[in-house]
Structures are given as structure tokens and as C-alpha cells.
Amino acid sequence: MENILEVKNLCKKYKEFELKNVNIILPKGMIMGFIGENGAGKTTTIKAILGIARDYTGEIKLFGLDNRKDDKKIKENIGVVLDDMFFPEILTPNDINSIMKNIYKNWDSKLYFKYLTDFALPNNKAIKTLSKGMRKKLEIVTAISHHPQLLILDEPTAGLDPVARSEVIDLFQSFIQNEECSIFLSSHITTDLEHVADYITFINNGNIILSKTREELLEDYGIVKCSKEEFEKINKKDFIKYKKSKYEYEILVENRKAFNKKYDIDTIDKITLEELMVLMIRGEK
């Protein structure tokens, strides 16, 4: 399978934070969810992929092209939504159209205005007058109106109400119908990713600590809930992390079926991405 995005050994050092050997591979036609807590390195990774952050080491390839050498060619083919970074807010959606048609070769004004209508976005109102949700929708519409092959989205559903989030997710899914297209999106709203992502990559404190398919994670991984006595009988090698609550132990296991065969504990549930995140970050070993 051809890869649309490849990040190899990406390192980037700040005074108080460091990306350490980040490796990401996104095959064509797939959606990758990029999760991690605030300050884990999601935005820094995205900024490095886009060439916004400088002075990093490692190799980043998009569409098989080096992001430093083939910058223009790459950017013609990607659509971007960045957290809190956009057009100056005194401009209107109409202004954005007249600017973008002079920036992207493939800018599709007809498609852009169709999306504006579909999302009930006004053409002539300044961005500053739009609600946070409407603004986010405008950012997404702007990112997809030049027929990009790859969408790179940093928190695209943040600030949207459930209805708007569902609309946006439908849009992502229709975008991915074309098997040439892929999406790399970071999000705190892990339930959205459970619906759409084919791959989940988890970054913590600048390290990629997990990168698997959604099926592997949601089907194989499990959360075991047991008493102190039961916990003490479990071999440390058989779980990833555990968290002690007031009445029980929550244990993250990599293969719930194998665990179930080995131990006589009944409460083994499928895990949600949110539980996974919390246990991976706050859990102990």
C-alpha cells in the first residue's frame, strides 16, 4: 500500500519540550487519528510536517516527496485546519474565495460556495462575527475546496456542537470515499475518532507510545476491573498500565481474549479511546 505521509525519526527541541524520534506512517485512503493530552506534541508534529516549525531533524515525506524540497507541489495537494490559526478576522468568506482562487491552482469556487450553503455559512459577514463553531466550519470548508489529496487537521471538531460535529464527520467520510485521499487529524474528542479513524497514533510527552489500527485497539485491547486481591495475582508482564480507584483496580491489557484465558476475572470490557488515553497517561506500571 502506498504511503501518503511518512515521518521518520522526527526530533525537535524547545527549551522545555522535545519531540523524540516521532515516526508516523499514513497509507493512502486512510484516516489517522492523532491523540494525546495538551502539550504532548501534536501541534508541534503537525507544524513540522507543514514546514511551519523549523530546525527539526528527521525526514518528512508527503506523497513520496520531501517536505523541504518540494514544498509548493506538496502544499497544492494538502488542505489544512490549524488550531487558532486562520485568515485575519476582518475578512469575509467572499474575501477568502477571491484570495484562495489566486493561491491554489485547483481552487473550486463553485464547490466552496456549495459548502458554505450546505453549512449555512454567510458569504458576506466578517469572520469575527461568526460563532466559534461557524468559524471552525469555515476553516474546514476552506481546507477542502481545492480538491486536496490529504487533509491535515489540528483539532477540527473543537468548539463544535454535536450536530455540527456529526456534519463535519460526514464530510470527512465523504472526502475519504475517494480512495486517493487521506486524513491526518489530531483531536481531543476521541469519540469522533472511534467513528472515523482507521489508525490511531498516540503521542505522550513528545514520544509516540502507540500506533495501531482502530480494530486492533478497540477489539483487542481491554480494560480489566478487579479487586486488590485479584490484581495482586496478575503477572506484571500481562498488563500495560493500571490505575487504582477507590473500590477497584482498572488494568489496561493488550489482548483481552488472551488475558481472559489466563486469568479467572469476569469483568474485561472493550476499551474506549478516552479510557486508553487516561490509563496510558495517568496509569502506573
Binding site: 509548493k72 502544499k75 490559526m85 485568515f87 485575519p88 478576522e89 491554489y104 491535515i152
Partner: peptide, 19 residues
């Protein structure tokens, strides 16, 4: 000032030939 407030300088780099 508007560019800086909306972090246009970072966003523009994600566009073709932006930098």
C-alpha cells in the same frame, strides 16, 4: 496587528509558496 492576532503568519506557511 490583525495578522498577528489571527496567527496568519503561521497559517500562510501551510499555503503554496506561503513562506
Amino acid at each position: 496587528s490583525y495578522d498577528s492576532y489571527n496567527k496568519w503568519d503561521a497559517y500562510v506557511i501551510s499555503l503554496p509558496d506561503g513562506r
